[in-house]
């Protein structure tokens, strides 16, 4: 799994940080910070759910 985030689109709903804190964080303004573009398999479900609930569709996933 390969993760990319679109920071300009992020609206700081914070759901990715709740669902996959090992992969996503927020900067001082609440905007998404990607901690790793290649998350460990045990975090894939959380990342997929994060992408599904992101209200701004700012999380993109690709199989590598």
């Amino acid at each position: 799994m390969r993760v990319t985030v679109d920071q300009p689109k992020c609206v700081a709903s914070g759901q990715c940080v709740m669902l996959a804190p090992e992969v996503f964080d927020q900067d001082d303004d609440g905007i998404v910070d990607l901690l790793t573009a290649a998350p460990a398999p045990e975090h894939h479900d959380g990342v997929r759910e994060s992408a599904a609930v992101c209200p701004a569709a700012a999380i993109h996933l690709a199989d590598r």
Binding site: G14, V17, G30, I31
Partner: peptide
């Protein structure tokens, strides 16, 4: 105004 509502 997003900063204080960040998860952490």
């Amino acid at each position: 105004v997003t900063a204080p509502f960040a998860v952490k």
